[in-house]
């Protein structure tokens, strides 16, 4: 194998940083979901990279579980977007104020 562990970790860090930028700056609900997806993928890449270089199969198993949980999370997140859009006619998180104290 010609690639080193550090190469994959650098890509993973870059994706994590982009995702954190998205979560902190974007106010659009769907774009925030994109950013969360990017962060989850960075974590999965990390898991599989370490699993390949140690090597054991547990990292891959955990990555598979993580992908399944992410699928559930996206389904619920998108349903919440639909409900919020129906209530407020908007997908800007700054406008969702009914829970504000």
């Amino acid at each position: 194998m010609s690639n080193e562990l550090i190469d994959f970790l650098i890509v993973s860090i870059a994706l994590l940083a982009i995702g954190i930028y998205g979560v902190s700056v974007k106010r659009n609900f769907i774009r925030m979901l994109f950013a969360i997806e990017i962060i989850i993928n960075a974590a999965n890449l990390n898991l599989v990279a370490f699993a390949r270089f140690i090597p054991n199969s547990e990292g891959q198993t955990l990555a598979l579980f993580s992908i399944a949980v992410a699928a559930a999370e996206v389904a619920v997140g998108l349903a919440l977007i639909i409900v919020a859009y129906r209530m407020y006619k908007n997908i800007d998180v700054a406008d969702f104020r009914s829970l504000k104290g």
Binding site: A49, A51, Q60, A63, L64, I67, A70, V74
Partner: peptide, 22 residues
């Protein structure tokens, strides 16, 4: 990347779940 890391099973899952459905 998963394919490059010799994990074709996870790559398959990623394509089926993420690219395919999400």
């Amino acid at each position: 990347f998963f394919i490059l890391l010799d994990s074709p099973f996870v790559a398959l899952f990623q394509i089926a779940v993420y690219v395919g459905s999400i």
